[in-house]
Design a binder for these strands. Structure first.
Lengths: 190, 190
DNA sequence: TAGTCCATGTAAGATGTTACATGATTCA
DNA sequence: TGAATCATGTAACATCTTACATGGACTA
């Protein structure tokens, strides 16, 4: 797993992001994951409960109520002050080239949670920096294609082009996102 | 890691794919990875050498020459007959919904290696099945958007749209791929 | 009270990351 | 011969997967 060192996996921050909205139990979180594209970042109990344990040990989340003695029932968690800080620090981190190359999904996840905690200008800044990095990487990819493109098999070349197209798509998306953020604000897709 | 049970990780098959072209040493493989988008599937010695060991233990690859006694030098590997069979089985596996959802990159990797081992009609079949699954998943995603789209924050919605756009991009790519495979055959991008 | 679902967890295994170790080769 | 770099690996650690375990609550 390409963990772009932020002090936690994408799953960790996805959980943090949901808990930032409202206190929830592990079961609730799991359901929220399963029923949404967040499932992409894992939705098995064997991943979520250990992740919650990690977050507790780090002091980023805590049980909402005093633990009911030898209780085994539903146990909602909420962010601690430190957890909130960690979440905000993650949100505010500028996108890097490494993240673009190895973990775009993580970047999109980050952006997904921004509206709940950061003002619009911060989101716009994110999109501009993101686009910058993606475009820089596209230059690399184009250079590679000009260099080694001749030796590729037909399907190899097509696969490579799929990657390029994907990143071009991110550039278009980013432009559209910035436009929507700065104008209509909450408008839906064209 | 979402390993869509095929009996090996994407890294394993990426290595197998390169060795299918020609015998190479771990060092060569690593260089090939580092210098290409295959790096996406990892390029650290700590991943590649253990992976080669696994492939050896499975009887999928073997040293090209008799091991030079207590040798520590360059050691090229080549596919065994079983390794070739495993590689072909992987290549020929039809794309599943699960792979589309959790491991598109693996599917593109698979397609990338197809030209070296399968005839064009097989590639066309792959693209059709792939498109079918992607379109099916797009229906799910659209349904989700209509259902939960109202409660999303602006950036949450944008992030979700990014996912949808990505898959639409795969559909377009797949159409173009099929066209190029069935007509011009080796033509470059428009 | 028996069965079913809710809810939390654990155990074993696979794979990847970072960082370091080590032996051979080459070249100044 | 000393330094760089080639080439292979290992150790410690983190995270995820699958599969199973467990206990409480609700309902027939």
């Amino acid at each position: 797993m390409r963990t772009v060192k932020t002090g936690g996996s994408n799953l960790d921050f996805a959980l943090l992001g949901l808990l930032h909205q409202a206190a929830r139990s592990g079961y609730d979180l799991r359901k929220a994951f399963t029923a949404s594209p967040l499932a992409h970042f894992s939705d098995s109990p064997g991943a979520i409960y250990p992740a919650l344990l990690r977050l507790r040990r780090r002091g980023w989340i805590e049980p909402e109520h005093v633990t009911p003695a030898g209780g085994r029932g539903r146990q909602p968690f909420r962010l601690t002050a430190r957890g909130r800080r960690a979440f905000l620090a993650w949100l505010a981190a500028p996108p890097t080239r490494d993240e673009v190359v190895y973990d775009v999904d993580g970047l999109v996840l980050r952006f997904a949670f921004m509206s709940q905690a950061l003002p619009v200008p911060a989101l716009v800044r994110f999109q501009r920096a993101f686009r910058q990095e993606v475009q820089g990487y596209l230059v690399e990819l184009d250079r590679f294609l000009r260099g080694a493109g001749g030796e590729m098999t037909p399907s190899g070349r097509l696969a490579f082009e799929s990657g390029i197209e994907g990143f071009r798509g991110y550039v278009r998306w980013s432009r559209r996102a910035e436009r929507r953020l700065t104008t209509g604000e909450g408008r839906s897709a064209p």
